[in-house]
Amino acid sequence: MSTQQVFEFISDNRQDLIEKWTSILSQLGENDSLKAVNEQMFRTICEEYMAIILTSPETNDEYTDKKIFEFAVKIVQLGLSLKLIAQALADFWKYLYRLMDEKSTSDKQSLKLVWEIEENITPINNEILNQYSISWEKTVSLQKEALQELSAPLIPVFEHVTVMPLVGTIDTERAKRIMENLLHGVVKHRSEVVLIDITGVPVVDTMVAHHIIQASEAVRLVGARCLLVGIRPEIAQTIVTLGIDLSQVITKNTLQKGIQTALEMTNRKIVPLGELVNETSENSYT
C-alpha cells in the first residue's frame, strides 16, 4: 500500500474517521473532567484535523504549517490538556491502522502499512503537539505577565497618598517588582505617603521583612514616607520572635488607621459631614 493509497483510504473513509475520533475526544474529555467543550466543538476539531491530514503533499509547507499552528491555537484556547491531545492523536493512529489492516491481504502488507502511516501521520501529530506546546507557553507567559502587573499595584486613594495592597506570598522576584512599582508610582502620583498593606500576606519571615525595610528606605530616598499596615497579631508575634527590627518603619494594624495617619502626616483629617457643616456655619457668622 503506497502513500497515495493511504491518503485515498483516509479520504474515502473521512466521515467514519471523524465520527470515531469525535467519540474518542468526547470520551477522553469526560475522563478529563472537561465540561466546557461540547460534542459539536470536538467534531469541529476532528474535521480540521482531517483537513490537515488530507492536505496534498504538493501543497506549500508554509500553508500546512499555518493550518497546524491555527489548529494548535484553537485547542489551547478551548482548554484541552496536552495529555488529552496526545492520547487522542495516538488513539486515532491506532484506529486508522486497525481499519486499514482489515483490508490488508498479508502480514508483509500490514507491516508496510504501519510504516506508511508512521511516515505520513506521525510528523503531522508531532508538529501539532509542538505547536500546541509553543502556543501554551505563550499563553502562560501572557498570563504570568498579567498576574505580575496585578501583583504589586499602587493605588492613589487621596491626593499625595497611595496604597499598595499585597496579597499572597512574596518571593525575591515579586519583591523586586514591588520595589520598582513603588518608586515609579511615588514619582508618577507625587506621593508624600505610601501605605504598604500586608493584610493579605500569609507569612512574614525575615526575607519578607528585609524586602519591606528596603522598600521603605527606597521610598524615603525619593522624598516620601512609608507606612506598613495590616499587621495581624500572629504576624506581630512572628516579627518579635524572629527579632526583626521595624523601628524605622511606621506600623499600623489596619488600613483604616494607616490612612488616618497618612492624612495627619499631610495635614489633613477626616471629619463627619455634620461637624463640617456646623463649622462652616459658625465661620460664616463671625
Rank of each mutant, 00 (worst) to 15 (best):
M1V: 05
N13I: 10
K20D: 15
W21A: 01
S23G: 10
I24Y: 07
I24G: 02
Q27V: 12
D32V: 04
V37Y: 08
N38Y: 08
E39C: 02
Q40N: 15
M41W: 06
Y49T: 02
A51F: 10
L54K: 12
L54V: 05
T55N: 06
T59V: 12
E62F: 08
Y63N: 07
Y63L: 13
T64V: 15
E70R: 12
I75G: 00
Q77T: 08
G79F: 05
L80P: 04
I85A: 04
F92Q: 11
K94N: 10
L96Q: 11
Y97D: 00
Y97N: 01
L99H: 04
D101Q: 11
E102N: 11
S104C: 15
Q109S: 07
Q109W: 03
L111P: 00
L111N: 02
L113G: 01
L113K: 10
N120H: 14
I121V: 12
N126A: 13
E127H: 14
I128T: 14
I128E: 09
L129A: 03
N130Y: 06
Y132D: 00
K138N: 14
V140P: 00
V140T: 07
A152D: 02
P153T: 14
L154R: 00
I155L: 14
P156Q: 12
H160E: 07
H160L: 04
T162W: 04
P165Y: 14
D171P: 03
D171L: 07
D171S: 05
T172G: 09
R174W: 02
R177P: 00
M179W: 08
M179Q: 11
N181S: 12
L183P: 01
H184C: 05
K188P: 01
G200T: 11
V201P: 02
T206L: 13
I212M: 04
E217N: 08
V219E: 01
L221K: 03
A224T: 10
A224V: 07
R225F: 01
C226D: 01
G230T: 15
I231H: 04
E234D: 08
L242G: 10
G243Q: 10
D245F: 07
L246V: 08
S247H: 13
T251F: 02
T251K: 01
N253Y: 14
L255W: 10
E264P: 00
T266E: 03
R268G: 06
K269A: 11
V271W: 07
V271C: 09
V277F: 11
E282L: 13
E282T: 08
Y285L: 15
